[in-house]
């Protein structure tokens, strides 16, 4: 059987492609782009919430937030590890993030001016991420699917801690409820954009579905998220900022308003509220850590030399 036929047969049988298998170059390139973008999103995603680590209102909330931000670092590293099995170097991926050659999710270019933003990120942003990511646990590329299984197990804690924090705000003062509503107003529409452009405009979708990298279309997943989330908003006593949002009994789903795709395009292009700040912070952290990486290499080399001499 020739290589292409073997690859097609593995995909058709819904089995997994593994690192040393032959694969079409475009399949490899698509996966590298997608996994790297996903890893970058986890790493940049540490920043909006990390900003609140020193200001968490209690030791309990601080410990939870530290664990969550640490998980995001971990998720980034699982994903870089998966990307490297496709023959790219991690330092190269970081370089592409720092220079803007590879993107990360637009959602992390929005600011977190208030504490309630941290909870709403857990509820909406991690909630949307879970809807996007659960099908990736069955992605045709083995290392990516395995990384996603670990990530999805851990994301569930992220979403629940966020919702629990918002329940505390709901049961708090009028000011706290207002803070909660304002944060929902800020994050609702950007969260819907996390599913990517509408199906008609999504250039890579058809091929990714055929390769079983993707299992569902962007619009399908977006609808699933809206249907899950709208009743949760009622529990929190908040209004989602969309006058067109209402239950459609014929479709058995919620109808919702038009997303501002011009805003999405602007944020992708780098004109979101925090694009520059996020990359500046990331490149500064990388540069400031350079001496640590160099010292560790020098120490390892010295230990090695001493062991050889002994």
């Amino acid at each position: 059987m020739d290589q292409q036929a073997h690859f097609d047969a593995v995909i058709a049988a819904d089995e997994r492609i593994e690192p040393r298998d032959w694969m079409p170059e475009k399949y490899r390139a698509t996966l590298i782009r997608q996994i790297a973008q996903h890893a970058h999103s986890e790493i940049i995603g540490m920043q909006p919430e990390g900003a609140w680590l020193t200001r968490a209102p209690s030791l309990r909330r601080k410990a939870i937030l530290l664990a969550k931000v640490q998980d995001e670092a971990g998720h980034g590293l699982y994903l870089y590890s998966a990307a490297e099995t496709l023959g790219v170097e991690r330092s190269d991926l970081l370089h592409r993030l720092h220079t803007g050659a590879q993107k990360y999710s637009t959602i992390f270019n929005y600011p977190t001016p208030e504490w309630a933003d941290v909870g709403v990120i857990g509820w909406l942003v991690d909630g949307a991420a879970i809807v996007n990511q659960v099908p990736l646990c069955r992605c045709s590329y083995g290392p990516y699917a395995r990384a996603m299984i670990r990530i999805c197990k851990e994301e569930s804690f992220h979403q629940r801690q966020g919702f629990e924090m918002l329940l505390a705000l709901r049961d708090g003062t009028d000011d706290q409820r207002a803070m909660l509503q304002n944060a929902v107003n800020r994050w609702w529409w950007p969260s819907l954009m996390m599913f990517g452009p509408p199906d008609a405009a999504s250039t890579n979708s058809a091929q990714s579905m055929a390769w079983r990298i993707k299992r569902h279309s962007n619009d399908e997943l977006r609808q699933r998220f809206v249907d899950m989330t709208a009743p949760q908003a009622d529990v929190l006593g908040v209004k989602l900022p969309d006058d067109k949002l209402r239950w459609n009994p014929e479709r058995g789903s919620y109808d919702f308003g038009e997303i501002d795709w011009d805003e999405f395009a602007r944020v992708v292009k780098g004109e979101g509220p925090c694009n520059a700040e996020r990359i500046e912070r990331r490149t500064a952290a990388h540069a400031e850590g350079a001496w640590v990486r160099e010292a560790a290499v020098a120490y390892a080399a010295k230990q090695h030399a001493q062991a050889d001499a002994a």
Binding site: Y78, S81, A296
Partner: peptide
């Protein structure tokens, strides 16, 4: 379970 980068075995 996966891979990682480190300068030596201890790290």
């Amino acid at each position: 379970v996966g891979s990682l980068h480190a300068p030596d075995a201890t790290m």
